[in-house]
């Protein structure tokens, strides 16, 4: 695992609050017991995690260096090590490269869009509303839990070229709307909007929780200081929300680098591969039984997410004045 990340881990989350750092007992004995207690807290998780998550992940990493195919399933260890061959092949695999391009667009546009929408909704719902609060919270969460089949039926209906709601609204403004899902230019942007729509409830829930962690008296102090709302948001809410934003950013990035369901139900990767994603290509290779090759694809996804996450950690690190 890359170690780079650790340097950028927020070190002092309370920075920016009005608190003075308290005195720390530096005694050595304290540190040793600290180790013990630290591991004591982490151990139950660590054991389960290493066995059931890290183990299979490691095995799959080795798989990506082999030529394992479904024909070898009875004897998975009887395969040949091909080193980085699978990875090299990937970079001349036209489909995969197309998919990588589509995925990049999806992530670069989709992640900020989704985060902004979720944050907006969370702020709206957190701004002292009393009435309908639960209704709103549940409502905006519904796309997350609605059956993807129902979602696809309704969206497809809305996106119908001739009779769909989307084009009727555009027609009202004199715009002749495109055939959204069957047009190579518009299919991917359409799925990005759909992705943001489906996932904003997820971000909203986490932002809502994160907003509660910001001490109320900080706001009170800011109000007394006459801070304008936007200034309050810019200099108080945003910095305090950084650990939460980092989490949402990383998780949303992971989800979007692996985006799959939207093209799977809406376009099957078409038209002409314009919505084929990397995760979809990986899924297909698994279906074809090319386990080694498919795993290599999975690890390319992994590397992409790691790099993006490092970027997020750098961008959202907790120094207020960077």
């Amino acid at each position: 695992m890359p170690e780079v990340r650790d340097r950028t881990v927020p070190s002092d989350p309370a920075a920016g609050s009005a608190v003075e750092p308290g005195p720390r007992p530096p005694a050595r004995a304290r540190r040793t017991t600290g180790w013990l207690t630290g591991w004591g807290f982490a151990l139950p998780f660590a054991v389960l995690f290493l066995v059931f998550t890290a183990g299979p992940v490691l095995a799959s990493l080795v798989m990506s260096l082999s030529d394992l195919r479904s024909a070898d399933l009875l004897d998975p260890f009887g395969v040949d090590v091909v080193g980085l061959d699978n990875y090299v092949r990937l970079f001349s695999d036209e489909k995969f490269l197309t998919a990588a391009g589509n995925t990049a667009v999806f992530v670069v546009v989709g992640v900020p869009l989704t985060m902004a929408l979720s944050l907006l909704v969370a702020l709206g719902l957190n701004s002292g509303l009393i009435r309908f609060r639960t209704l709103f919270r549940v409502g905006y969460y519904l796309p997350v839990v609605t059956s993807i089949v129902a979602i696809s039926v309704v969206w497809r209906f809305v996106l119908q070229p001739d009779t769909g709601l989307a084009n009727e609204i555009l027609g009202f403004f004199g715009v002749d709307g495109p055939n959204w899902l069957n047009n190579e230019t518009f299919a991917l942007p359409t799925l990005i909007v759909m992705g943001a729509w489906r996932n904003l409830g997820f971000g909203m829930v986490i932002f809502l929780a994160g907003l509660q962690a910001i001490p109320k008296d900080l706001y009170e102090a800011a109000t007394i200081d006459g801070a304008k709302r936007f200034a309050q948001f810019r200099y108080l809410t945003l910095p305090m929300l950084r650990p939460t934003m980092l989490f949402v950013a990383v998780i949303t990035t992971i989800g979007y680098v692996q985006f799959f369901e939207e093209p799977f139900v809406m376009t099957q990767g078409g038209p002409l591969d314009s919505t084929l994603s990397m995760a979809y290509a990986t899924y297909n290779q698994f279906g074809f039984g090319n386990y080694g090759y498919a795993s290599a694809m999975g690890y390319v996804l992994f590397v992409v997410v790691v790099l993006l996450s490092i970027a997020w950690f750098k961008l959202l690190r907790n120094d207020v004045d960077d």
């Binding site: 990340r5 630290g38 890290a54 992971i254 692996q258 992994f302 997410v305």
Partner: peptide, 30 residues
């Protein structure tokens, strides 16, 4: 809490989060 191996543990945790789950299906089943 300060403890030895903390960074490594967090790194591994984050890393596995980024591996698509279908990749590990067969090893996990075995």
């Amino acid at each position: 809490l300060p403890f030895a191996g903390k960074k490594a543990l967090f790194g591994i945790v984050l890393g596995t989060l980024m591996v698509p789950s279908i990749v590990t299906m067969v090893p996990l089943f075995v």
